[in-house]
Write a protein that binds this DNA or RNA. Structure first.
Length: 646
DNA sequence: CTGGGCGAG
DNA sequence: TCTTCTCGCCCAG
């Protein structure tokens, strides 16, 4: 069909992307093998006696993952619980539907790595993966290197403190390399004349140090990849899992391009950034072309095959991938990937997420009645409010990570989400797997989510002590705060005033037979609060912030290197004040622009009266809801308000 | 700005 | 049986 009619442009010059070796990128995967093994590791760390027993993590009716004791007994991840229990009757099952504990561990590990960065380029991917751009640290340490005493080198982790760091043997790589010619006498040795080789060697020792600390200090093993961009670092890390690292060398022992050889062994689906949709489109094209690629089982087109396909080019790929809504420039992006080139930057660490969402699925028993929906929305909304308090607020005095105490300062919001979104999915009888392609025009009505959004009312920002749910004490005992509302109270109001109107927009038909397999609620569109002079004490809402003084606010985000590393030294456990007194010992890097750190918007609080935009007027929203309600059937409203018990 | 698609784990 | 529970980016309208 469409794709097969594409013809390579013959006369056009094909540009071959050139790798850029300026950067050094590290990639870590904690408790590798697969991401959800991380879940098992978290439970094992909470309760070490589990390590010797078969442990499974369940989510709904399936086993999300299991530890290696369980795997040795034949239990597999993604198995049905019933099946797993048949195979292994003494399987210990933990519920992994609530991700809180995994998030907490993930944050801790991420904070550790972040403390070692000099440039804030520390990007999280999922809960258990992190990229670091360590170009600057490596450049600095390369200058320190004494080529005549490589064996007794010292890696400096802090520019301002020559003692902070570790000793290493600079004549060798740490961990594994790729390629790794075991027959060569110079295996693992460094070509001192080659600057890139030296930088990769240094990075291998840094990665090794960080992985050792992750293991020793936190109890999490990890795999690591070391290369010159995110793509290569990530693929390299896959080579020696779960508890080792791989440095991708530019040249093999024979001087051939090792990166290209390395890339060519992978199937295109292994490339992060080439997902199912892109891979499918590429395969449709490639498998219809050369005879060699055609009649073979499985669509495992390799990178080498795609790259060497006659006429293949950035432009051809752009055509192949062109479809309504397609990302522009993805042809060039994929063409770059095929050559081991990835121009994307490691994003800077951000203190606030761009969205927070909570969802639950009801596959085995879809929700049918509005009363059920009401009940579930309440549960979800309560979790969402709790999460907002955890992830979008900060106590005035920041707790130290080691002591793990939540200090009793007046918490304040770091950001206000502007938008609330409700998504649902109905259970469809004939859910067609993505692999089956519609042959002509008629797109498969692939069951997917639909959503509606509305402004998030500001009463959700009424404060209360941090996470009363996790405290064993009655919530009144600590940090009494004015204008305190519990998560449940806020959730109830949110359901009736915002979520139900949204739900009715999504599902105008009344009565039962809703057949919902998924509910998701999400807050997004974050507006960062300038948190300088915190308006402590007030039940701060989006309108109550004082005007900001951006200078101090930003400098606070760039604490000095000593400050950050101090968090991880054994002897100094003193908490540092969050907004310490004027503290400009080392100026923040001038090249950092707050606008590039995230796509979050800074919130400038109006100094006087409220503005026409944000913050909104609750009453107006309430009115809107009332008006909408008016043309609704009252009986059905009563159904929505009703609480149904299981 | 909204609603959907895709890609990551 | 494409499963679970997310998060982020990008697009068109």
């Amino acid at each position: 069909m469409r794709t097969t009619s594409l013809t390579p442009k013959i006369a056009k010059q094909i540009k071959i992307p050139k790798r850029n070796d300026d950067r050094i990128i590290l990639h870590f995967v904690c408790s590798a093998f697969d991401y959800d093994c991380f879940y098992a590791s978290v439970f094992e760390n909470e309760n070490p006696s589990l390590k010797s027993q078969p442990l499974g993590i369940k989510q709904k009716s399936i086993l999300a993952t299991c530890n290696y004791v369980a795997r040795a007994r034949g239990v597999k991840k993604l198995m049905l619980i019933s099946e797993a229990q048949k195979i292994c009757p003494d399987l210990i099952l933990m519920n992994g539907e609530d991700l809180t504990r995994f998030r907490d561990v993930s944050k801790k590990l991420w904070a550790f790595l972040r403390a070692h960065s000099w440039n804030r380029r520390v990007e999280r991917l999922g809960l258990d993966e992190v990229f670091l751009d360590v170009t600057d640290i490596i450049a600095y340490n390369r200058e320190l290197l004494n080529v005549h005493a490589l064996g007794t080198s010292f890696f400096q982790l802090d520019r301002n403190d020559p003692v902070k760091g570790f000793a290493f043997d600079g004549s060798r790589f740490y961990g594994c390399t790729q390629p790794d010619d075991k027959l060569r006498a110079d295996r693992g040795l460094v070509d001192v004349e080659n600057p890139l080789c030296v930088r990769l060697m240094l990075a291998s020792h840094l990665a090794g140090y960080l992985r050792r600390k992750l293991d020793e200090d936190f109890g999490y093993t990890s795999s690591g990849g070391i290369s010159t961009n995110k793509l290569l670092a990530k693929l390299a890390g896959n080579v020696n899992k779960p508890n080792n690292q791989t440095t991708l060398l530019a040249k093999g022992g024979d001087g051939a391009d090792a990166v290209e050889a390395f890339m060519d062994t992978h199937s295109i689906r292994k490339v992060p950034g080439i997902g199912s949709r892109i891979a499918q489109l590429m395969e449709e094209y490639l498998l219809s072309r050369p005879a060699k690629l055609r009649d073979r089982e499985g669509n495992n087109v390799t990178i080498g095959e795609a790259r060497r396909c006659p006429g293949m080019s950035s432009d051809l790929l752009e055509q192949i991938l062109d479809r309504p809504g397609a990302e522009r420039g993805s042809g060039e992006k994929v063409w770059n990937f095929l050559h081991g080139v990835d121009l994307s930057e490691v994003k800077e660490a951000s203190d606030v997420p761009t969205q927070i969402s909570i969802e639950d699925t009801y596959m085995s028993r879809p929700l049918q009645t509005p009363a059920e929906v009401n009940q579930e929305l309440h549960t979800l909304a309560t979790s969402l409010i709790r999460r907002m308090r955890v992830d979008l607020t900060e106590a005035e005095i920041k707790p130290t990570v080691q002591s793990n105490t939540t200090s009793c300062g007046t918490p304040h919001w770091l950001a206000y989400p502007k938008t609330l979104r409700l998504s649902t999915r109905t259970k469809s009888k004939q859910s067609i797997p993505a692999s089956s392609t519609s042959t002509n025009g008629a797109e498969v009505p692939n069951f997917s989510r639909s959503s509606r959004s509305a402004p998030l009312p500001s009463f959700v920002f009424q404060f209360s002590p941090p996470s009363p749910s996790t405290s064993s004490l009655p919530s009144t005992s600590t940090c009494p705060s004015p204008a305190t509302l519990s998560c449940e109270e806020i959730a109830s109001r949110l359901v009736t005033e915002s979520l139900l109107p949204l739900f009715r927009r999504l599902h105008p038909s009344r009565g039962g037979g809703l057949n919902l397999a998924l509910l998701n609620i999400c807050v997004t569109n974050m507006v960062l609060v300038a948190r300088d002079e915190v308006n402590s004490g007030s039940g701060s809402g989006p309108g109550s912030g004082s005007s900001m003084a951006p200078g101090r606010d930003i400098s606070r985000m760039f604490r000095t290197q000593e400050d950050k590393l101090r968090e991880w030294t054994v002897y100094d456990t003193s908490p540092f004040p969050a907004s310490a007194a004027p503290h400009p010992p080392s100026a923040p890097p001038s090249d950092i622009d707050i606008n590039t750190t995230s796509n979050l918007i800074r919130y400038t609080a109006p100094t006087g009266e409220s503005t026409d935009g944000y913050p909104r007027d609750d009453e107006a929203i309430a009115d809107l809801v009332m008006m909408e309600d008016e043309d609704e059937d009252e009986e059905s409203d009563a159904q929505f308000q009703g609480r149904r018990l299981p």
